[in-house]
């Protein structure tokens, strides 16, 4: 474990806690894409299949359980909670996430480190996580006014993978010089997808104005 990875995990955890807090406190999920949240559940389920089989550390296991639990409860709130689900506008959250899931799965079957169930699912989860934010970003572009919590949520979500990029640089040079193209390139793409959001987010923060993404 290194400081970059810990900072990344804490940023990731903070983003999810922030979203869960927004939904529970405001009893609203306005501006949040259910599609993206469902993709994250798929990412965590396919990535943590070895939770019950492989033990790395207490931290690793507890964080996996927290990520699984929080992401599933967010989807539960948005789909089934009697008050929250009324605030979900499915007419604007129209991104067909099957167009993300299928290509990522096929790619994981073709490009992976080993053709085993665990490894292919792990690879699939990395490819899918790289593009999982797209429905949320599309929804933000359609939203006239983005509330601060949602903006901060997306920013933290993007920042966590940027920390992971630093973690991979650190691990390559300091630890085992092991080349890991799949996480590296997926993480690079994931962070690049946030680039324009980061630009508008920082601009709105500097100019103290409302966050607005160009349509």
């Amino acid at each position: 474990m290194n400081a970059f990875r810990l900072a990344g995990d804490m940023t990731h955890l903070l983003s999810i806690i922030l979203l869960l807090h927004k939904i529970r406190a405001m009893k609203s999920c306005a501006g949040i894409s259910l599609r993206t949240q469902e993709l994250y559940v798929i990412v965590f389920v396919t990535r943590y299949v070895d939770l019950s089989m492989k033990y790395y550390s207490f931290y690793n296991s507890i964080m996996k359980i927290v990520f699984l639990g929080t992401s599933i409860s967010i989807v539960w709130y948005m789909r089934y909670h009697k008050v929250v689900k009324q605030t979900y506008n499915k007419d604007v959250d129209t991104f067909r996430h099957i167009f993300l899931i299928l290509p990522c799965f096929v790619l994981a079957l073709l490009i992976n480190r080993a053709f085993t169930v665990i490894e292919v699912l792990w690879t699939f989860s990395l490819y899918l996580e790289a593009v999982a934010i797209l429905p949320q970003l599309v929804l933000l572009q359609r939203s006239r006014n983005i509330d601060n919590l949602t903006g901060n949520y997306v920013f933290l979500l993007g920042a966590y993978r940027a920390f992971y990029l630093l973690n991979w640089i650190y691990r390559f040079f300091i630890e085992n010089h092991q080349v890991r193209w799949i996480p590296w390139l997926s993480g690079l793409l994931q962070t690049a997808i946030y680039a324009d959001f980061f630009y508008y987010y920082i601009k709105s923060w500097k100019n103290r104005e409302k966050l607005k993404l160009p349509a």
Binding site: R47, D50, K54, N60, M63, F67, R113, A114, Y164
Partner: peptide
């Protein structure tokens, strides 16, 4: 080869 594919990151 296969076994030493650690998924030690979250």
């Amino acid at each position: 080869f296969v076994d030493d594919l650690p998924h030690d990151e979250l």
